[in-house]
Nucleic acid binder design. Sequence first.
RNA 1: GCCGCCAUCGUCUAGUGGUCCAGGACAUAUGGUUCUCAUCCAUAAAAUCGAGGGUUCGAGUCCCUCUGGCGGCACCA
Length: 466
Amino acid sequence: MTVRTRMAPSPTGEYHIGHIRTLLYNYAWAKNNKGRFILRIEDTDRERLVEGAVDRILAVIRDYGLSYDEGPRVGGPFAPYYQSERLPIYQKYAKQLVDQGLAYYCFCSKERLEALRKKQQAEGKLPGYDRHCRNLKPAEVKHKFAANESYVIRLKIPDGEEISFTDVVMGKIKVNSGSLDDQILLKSDGFPTYHLAVVVDDHLMEITHIIRGNEWLSSTPKHILLYRAFGWEPPTFVHLPVFLDPAGEGKMSKRRGSVSARSFLENGYLPEAILNYLMLLGWNPGNDREIFSLEEFTKTFDLKNLNKANPRFTFDKLNWFNQQYLRAMDYENLAERLLKFSTYNKGEIVRVLPLIRDRLITLKEFDDQAGYFFHPPAVDRKSLSGFKSADRILEHAASVLSEKLDGKFLEEKAREYCASHGLKVGDYFMVLRIAITGRTATPPLGEIIQILGEAETIKRLKANSY
RNA sequence: GCCGCCAUCGUCUAGUGGUCCAGGACAUAUGGUUCUCAUCCAUAAAAUCGAGGGUUCGAGUCCCUCUGGCGGCACCA
């Protein structure tokens, strides 16, 4: 059987970094098995629908270097891939369950439900639907239909039954049906709830593996019941642990900082580095290897090596991965990526990159670290005057360099000068460094002056002497 | 509150009854290289395997209890 996995985003806001991880695993598992990876848009909540969200989700998936075999734009044999375009399908299946006596029409108003919930809370009972409409007589139902009362369709949850299923990651899960509510399947606006839509679509689209976040684990028994009601074989469930925020205090969320997939890109992280970090958060190859390209990952990825515990998402390791990928990049390609983050042009960037690349953690830092190559720095006079004979050092260096603009030559002369004047070589160069770059930490000066050229170097030395 | 899940260095993790006085990576510290920073190299510190009971000749690995953490309990997904 062909392996078919899916990712089903809701266009209700920004795509989360955790979603990228789930998508990555779905993608990898499909590829690993020479299967198909499907993208389906779950836009059944009209109230939370956000304009343009689908476009942004598709764009960010592409920007991470990921793709899907079937879904929006590309189509596929099970189109449409937007749930909002599949309404008649869900309605048909919901009615089928009603006809079979496995689901029922419920005419309870939102107000009644609200009041019920309040009452239950006040009484200290666990909130839940009281099955008010579960046993309406056919005549009553007919009457309410005739009166045009709005309704939903609810699933009849059996009493006192143990529902169990095996999750690839979590193992055998058992739940008593008593802890489940008579779930709404079809909303009063004719749209399905997640539970109905996901089961129907996963079945119709022949999904073999549901790889999703752990937050879905507790609603899986409802889905199992639905599969059973329809007489369908459930797919394999794979519930991934959730990412905890850097402090480890809870699920990563918007409230706890920037977690949108887009924001990482905007902060100068390379998609391949982020992906690599994500691969290893909750999965391991069974050995000590850490660097994986997307393609290598799809070959190695195995559901067996998934972790159960919720990992903490932190930046230290991500930064390290980003550096590794940055250093592995050639200057031309890196310059291309830098364009979005820099005010300088590609030629300028490529020229200084050999000195800067290995010192970058993210793309964002380039301009800050390389600015002095392109314009004279603002030099704080006080930082220079802290050094003994700063102006004489500058004068000396200027005369040496106008003789010959060469790092080795400068160093030779600097050592001689320092030896005869009782100065430290380190101080000598620090004075030059500050005068030329305005910074105390830079690449080797000998290489910087080669790029700046004689005229500019001497100019900066003179500009900062008395 | 109820239901469910999880638990190895600060962090991500390896570890599926003996080869583990627990291995790797990140982060940290120290030293070396160096005109500074970064890189690179070396070294160090870092987990009585959440706690307590079992089972076993032998437990990080199996069982139970507790504790802690996380997730879920909508006409949201």
